[in-house]
């Protein structure tokens, strides 16, 4: 139940997946609002602090997610998936897992390189030190641009990821979405296995 099965995701994967999803989408909204919308300065200040605290949380969970992904088995692809589709999905997941780590790292770099030298006080409890970067206007600008680019690229990929999940679940009737929602989902609950796909899936988690 906790761990992934041959055909289903365990609770750990599912909880990490949706917690990170919620955090990342929330961070996108907060990040966009605090940077691109004219706000009351005091509110903007506090959004920055929330963004950093939530962002560090996302970073921690994304690291756990990556370790879990590397060490835990991946369930077989759902039946009916074209090998090309499976390869594209694997590639997207791999990039999302990577972006989930480097986007907040780049955010941390913004806070660290900023000439404001403002401490990151994680949820007003503990100071998270700056990364050892030189503080200058140009370094800050560089990391801010990098962070924003990574975040919006991730947002685009997330959109594709969501669209694919919805399409496969509801148009093609493949249980890709449902099995990320419900642990213990059995392949027998869905369409029968086709031999070709089963062997393709066994071939290995790390090459699409």
């Amino acid at each position: 139940m906790l761990r992934n099965g041959e055909n289903d995701f365990g609770i750990v994967t599912i909880v990490l997946h949706w917690t990170i999803a919620l955090l990342v989408l929330g961070l996108m909204v907060v990040g966009f609002a605090m940077r691109r919308i004219e706000l009351d300065p005091a509110l903007q200040f506090s959004l920055y602090q929330w963004h950093k605290s939530l962002g560090f949380t996302a970073l921690g969970l994304a690291l756990l997610r990556a370790i879990w992904w590397l060490t835990e088995r991946t369930p077989r692809p759902v039946p009916g998936l074209h090998p090309f589709e499976h390869a594209a999905a694997r590639q997207t997941h791999r990039i999302l897992i990577l972006l989930g780590i480097i986007t907040p790292l780049a955010g941390w770099a913004v806070a660290s390189a900023s000439t404001l030298n403002m401490p990151s006080l994680y949820f007003n409890i503990i100071v998270i030190p700056h990364l050892p970067l030189q503080q200058s206007d140009s370094a800050e600008a560089f990391w801010a641009l990098t962070h924003a680019l990574l975040a919006y690229v991730m947002l685009a990929l997330v959109a594709i990821h969501i669209a694919a999940a919805i399409y496969h679940q509801f148009v093609r009737g493949e249980a890709v979405l449902i099995r990320m929602l419900r642990s213990g989902f059995r392949r027998s609950d869905a369409a029968p296995v086709e031999a070709g796909e089963a062997s393709e899936a066994v071939a290995g988690r790390n090459d699409p």
Binding site: P41, T115, L116
Partner: peptide
Amino acid sequence: RERRIENFLRSSA
């Protein structure tokens, strides 16, 4: 030491 800080101090915050 920075314009950003001055503007923040002048602001409604």
